[in-house]
Every structure is written in structure tokens, then in C-alpha cells.
């Protein structure tokens, strides 16, 4: 599913971002990635999204070997994963429905399939009633649900959630996490990068803690502060 072996990432200027990181995530797992700012969490997500390549070491995601990936194949890798960001990244001038459908339009799915599937995921995230509204008319939690719907609309086998609750109040955050758990329950692997210690501590899932570019801790049923 997801395998990093001795991954090191160095930037021309600045310290080593990741040092000899090895992580294996099997299909259907729910994993928290935690750690202080500058620990390498952002670099890790960039590597997973293939926005950057590792300096050394190998990364295999959904059977794609990142080191052997040609530029043309990068979009294929990205289609096999859904991504959610802290800042939602929605188009403000498009309706909820259009925002979600866009992920299917760019991978050239037939319009009738798009309509059906979009209706399905919107009902899953509980936004059927708001499908014709613009993101600006929604609360932060609702906007993140739209982003989540967009992330799973193409049925990826992996969802990468980069601080998905970072901009939300605790109560709303729980709503989002609940959805992530629901999606994970259908077999989708979930990788959630987060600072929300209460969530991590109460769910007792696998926790990978990064510190100064290294894996400081990787434990099942872990907590935020080891």
C-alpha cells in the first residue's frame, strides 16, 4: 500500500528535512502522523503527493514506485489518492456540487456517472441540501466536508489528510474525524497529519511521531505525546 524505505530528503538550502525514514502502512490502516513544526511532516506529504522526489531511498505508493515514475505517470499516482488540506482549497465561485464534480471532470469521467457519484458522496458527507451553495455560504466544517467529498469521489485507496481540522473548532473537528473514520471503515487507508492531540489521544490509532526529520516513535494504539 504505502512503503517508505530509508527515505532522505535534503533541500539545497537548509537542514535535512527527512533522514532515513522507513514507514510501512498496510491497506485499510488508520495512521496519525504527528510531530512539532519542522519535524518533516510537510516534506512527507509532499513526497507522498509526488510534488517532490526523495534525495535517496524508495517510496512505493499503491504499487507506484515513485523513483521510477515518469512525469507523465504522476497524475495517475495522484488519482489513486485523495487529498484534504487544512485550507480546504475549494473554488469560491463554484457550487458545492461543481467543486466535487471537478475531480471527476479532470479525469474524464462520463457526465452521467459524475452526477450519480457526486450525489452519493454528498449524501455521505451530509451536504445533499447544500449542493447548490457556494463555499463562502458554508461554515468551515461544511467546507472541509466538501473537500473530503472531492477527495473520495474518485474512490481512492488512500486518503492523505494534511491537518484537516487545523482551521476548525474542536466540535466541528470531531465531525470531520468521524467522517474520516467512516471512510476508513469502508477499506480506504487513512493517513492523517495532525496537531490535534485530543483526537489522537482518544482514538488510540497507530501514531507515527516525527522529530527533526526522523521517525521518533511508531506505535499501535499510540498517543500524541509519547
Amino acid at each position: 500500500m504505502l512503503e517508505l524505505r530509508n527515505v532522505t530528503k535534503m533541500y539545497p538550502s537548509g537542514p535535512v528535512a527527512l533522514k532515513e525514514v522507513s514507514i510501512t502502512v498496510t491497506e485499510g490502516e488508520f495512521v496519525f502522523v504527528v510531530g512539532p513544526s519542522g519535524a518533516g511532516k510537510t516534506t512527507l506529504t509532499k513526497l507522498l503527493m509526488c510534488e517532490e522526489r526523495p534525495t535517496s531511498g524508495s517510496i512505493i505508493i499503491n504499487n507506484f514506485d515513485v523513483n521510477k515514475l515518469r512525469p507523465k505517470e504522476v497524475p495517475l499516482l495522484r488519482r489513486s489518492m485523495g487529498v484534504v488540506f487544512q485550507d480546504f482549497r475549494l473554488m469560491p465561485t463554484w457550487t458545492v456540487e461543481e467543486n466535487v464534480a471537478f475531480a471527476m471532470v479532470v479525469v474524464e469521467v462520463a457526465p452521467r456517472h459524475i452526477r450519480r457519484r457526486v450525489a452519493e458522496v454528498l449524501s455521505l458527507v451530509g451536504l445533499t441540501n447544500k449542493r447548490n451553495q457556494l463555499p463562502g455560504q458554508l461554515s468551515g466544517g461544511e467546507q472541509q466536508r466538501v473537500a473530503l467529498a472531492r477527495a473520495i469521489v474518485n474512490q481512492p485507496s488512500l486518503v492523505l489528510a494534511d491537518e484537516p481540522t487545523g482551521n476548525l473548532d474542536p466540535e466541528t473537528s470531531w465531525g470531520i474525524v468521524k467522517l474520516l473514520l467512516d471512510i476508513n471503515a469502508t477499506g480506504t487507508t487513512m493517513l492523517m497529519v495532525t496537531h490535534a492531540n485530543q483526537i489522537v489521544d482518544s482514538l488510540r490509532k497507530r501514531v507515527i511521531a516525527l522529530d527533526a526529520g526522523r521517525v521518533a516513535r511508531d506505535e499501535e494504539g499510540g498517543v500524541y505525546h509519547g
Binding site: 507523465k72 497524475p75 495522484r78 488519482r79 487529498v83 482549497r89 479532470v106 479525469v107
Partner: peptide
């Protein structure tokens, strides 16, 4: 640029 960014991470090809 926003739209382009979204296109990238949802897996649009360069030519798309």
C-alpha cells in the same frame, strides 16, 4: 492558479 493547483492534486494530466 487556484484552479490549476486543484487540478494538479486531483490528478489532471499536464496537457489537460
Amino acid at each position: 492558479r487556484r484552479e490549476i493547483g486543484i487540478m494538479r492534486f486531483v490528478g489532471a494530466t499536464d496537457w489537460f
